[in-house]
Design a protein around this nucleic acid. Structure first.
Length: 564
RNA sequence: UGGGGGAUCGUCUAGCGGUAGGACGCCGGCCUUUGGAGCCGGCUACCUAGGUUCGAUUCCUAGUCCCCCAGCCA
């Protein structure tokens, strides 16, 4: 990737200054370290853009992809694959520098032996329950575990036996010997290793002893020669422990941890726990459900990596907790797709229009511009005939103020075609529902012909009944109907879900050029929005996802109108 | 009544002692064969109170409010 440098931020300043000062031997090595226990989301994209972006922009910089797989009970190779796919799809490259914390288990064990030898770690026999009691509280100091006085030899012996599988889960831990009275709770003899007789997706049953994050992470960083270890704010008070581990283990290298605020977005959820809950309870259709802020979801919905990167660059990096408006994300996908999505005509909610004065059985091919923003996109032919469908929203029997579209006796232009006039409305005698419109067309108003005196206030899209292709369109609405921040924590957060976040319309009609739309291809349905061909789409049954609507000035006017 | 962080337009963000800027959003207008796009203009922001200084969003002090931490999760 060779895009213009991102806007600066405090982390970029630190890294740039360190690089200029020749710190770390002039190297810059960052890392993106997900635990493979879920799919990546837009919040991870922020971190990916930061870490890889930094490495890309600084000469000689490199960003590692490291799987922080130290907990065998939550991790799965499915996630390892998905994470690699997503990072690549976002446009980043780890240049072969892909690592697994689980590959360091042996070396991590040796560091622990070293720590024990220095008298800085001990095997504790307290139960989890007891350990909690001994830890003290936020305001009261903890007290030393009886195990703290064990000799180095005894610790070494016990630790090796822990590794050998002699003890059951939960019976022993390895703890750092720091300070049980430390005001920072993370320093009150944190657990370094715990026993887990579980199968790890990579190391199988080779280990029953697993290093904790606070121990494995700093040492993994050190082993890889990471210079700047960037993480989110909640790890701020782990930094003293991070530094302690690297220093006391006599690691070959001292990385610097820097924290920034994670991304929050309005109307959606970003925690792995909640996303997993949505997927496992089938509240959505999977990790790639287009309603989700996962990378896979956004991708299926039609988002481009370029738009996501532009968004990430734009929101900036800071330490203040912030919630970005979804509209900003939408702005970036509109901006990107406006420049490159080919325009087509599609009618979501069809209303039949019969052109009384257009010869029955006749049809013609009309030239249509593929993208007014991109002359190189060329043009195509769209068939026109006597019976058409227009959007139900484009006709009002009793038009409100400022409604410029079709109404009895009124004229509109059909995009790329003629000006038509509504001369009759047919209704279902039973329901009173409008079933079809009778219109006349003016053959002298063919699109492209100068029409000095014929100005109409609206141009609407249409499809030819005889040529249109039936399609399903899926519209997505916000995942959440209620702001989670306004809910009490004891309430079930899923009650905040928007029950109508997915709207499927199965009898849409699209222009024939869309018949063979390939899954993943993106279009602008004129006047409606940007749509992406879904992976479920087939030639027999095309399916389109609405990525985002176009900005809708009329919707605003209508909403602002007094009533009705 | 511990520790660690953070407070700038509605939202995100810039500012590094010298006229508080940008983006989104919103409101007008122009333009338009997409009520899209584009163009032009506008939109009650420095948490509070003191102090230092010719001058403070910036430095200092004291408050206020918000977030994180008591997993053998990461």
């Amino acid at each position: 990737m060779s895009e213009p440098s991102s806007a600066s931020n405090f982390i970029r300043e630190i890294v740039t200054a360190d690089h200029a000062a020749g710190k770390h031997g002039g190297r810059v090595v960052t890392r993106f370290p997900p635990e493979p226990n879920g799919y990546l989301h837009i919040g991870h994209a922020k971190s990916i853009c930061l870490n890889f972006g930094l490495a890309n922009d600084i000469p000689g910089g490199i960003c590692h992809l490291r799987f922080d797989d130290t907990n065998p009970t939550t991790e799965d190779p499915e996630y390892v694959q998905a994470i690699q796919d997503d990072v690549r799809w976002l446009g980043f490259d780890w240049h072969e520098k892909m690592f697994f914390a689980s590959d360091y288990f042996e070396r991590l064990f040796e560091f622990a032996v070293h720590l024990i030898g220095k008298g800085l770690a001990y095997v504790d026999t307290l139960t989890a329950e007891e350990m909690r009691t001994y830890r003290g509280t936020l305001t009261e100091p903890g007290k030393n575990s009886p195990s703290r006085a064990r000799s180095v030899d005894e610790n070494l012996d016990l630790f090796r036996r822990m590794k050998a599988g002699e003890f059951a889960d939960g019976t022993h831990t390895l703890r750092a010997k720091i300070d049980m009275a430390a005001p920072n709770i993370n320093l009150r003899d944190p657990v370094l290793y715990r026993i887990r007789h579980a199968t790890h997706y990579r190391t199988g049953s080779a280990w029953c002893l697993y290093p904790a994050y606070d121990y494995a992470h700093p040492l993994s960083d050190a082993l890889e020669g990471i210079t700047h270890s960037i993480c989110t704010l909640e790890f701020e008070d782990h930094r003293p422990l991070y530094d302690w581990v690297v220093k006391q283990a006599d690691a070959p290298h001292r990385p610097q941890q820097i924290e920034f605020a994670r991304l929050n977005l309005t109307y959606t959820v970003m925690s792995k726990r909640k996303l997993l809950e949505l997927v496992s309870k089938k509240l959505v259709h999977g990790w790639d459900d287009p309603r989700l802020p996962t990378i896979k979801g956004l991708r299926r919905r039609g988002y481009t990596p370029e738009a996501i990167r532009a968004f990430c660059d734009h929101i900036g990096i800071a330490k203040r907790e912030a919630t970005v408006e979804m509209q900003l994300l939408e702005h970036f996908i509109r901006e990107d797709l406006n420049k490159r999505a080919p325009r087509v005509m599609a009618v979501l909610r069809p209303l039949k229009v019969i052109l009384d004065n257009y010869p029955d059985g006749q049809s013609e091919e009309l030239g249509a511009i593929n993208n007014p923003e991109d002359p190189a996109a060329g043009s195509r032919q769209v068939p026109f005939s006597r019976v058409l469908y227009i959007e139900q929203d484009d006709f009002r029997e009793d038009p409100p103020k400022q409604f410029f579209r079709l109404a009895p006796g009124r004229e509109v232009r059909l995009r790329y075609a003629y000006i038509i006039k509504c001369v009759g409305v047919t209704k279902d005698p039973q329901t009173g529902e409008i079933t079809e419109l009778h219109c006349t067309y003016d053959p002298l108003t063919m699109s492209g012909v100068a029409q000095e005196q014929r100005k109409v206030k609206a141009t609407i899209h249409w499809v030819s009944a005889a040529h249109a292709v039936k399609a399903e369109v899926r519209l997505y609405h916000p995942l959440l109907a209620t702001d989670l921040a306004k809910m009490s924590p004891d309430q079930d957060w899923t009650t905040a879900l928007n029950p109508s976040s997915l709207e499927r319309i199965t009898d849409c009609l699209v222009e024939p050029s869309l018949r063979q739309a390939a899954p993943g291809s993106r279009y602008q349905f004129e006047r409606l929005g940007y749509f992406c061909t879904d992976q479920d789409s087939t030639i027999e049954a095309p399916v389109f996802n609405r990525t985002v609507s176009l900005k809708d000035a009329w919707a605003k006017i209508e909403k602002a109108q007094p009533s009705k």
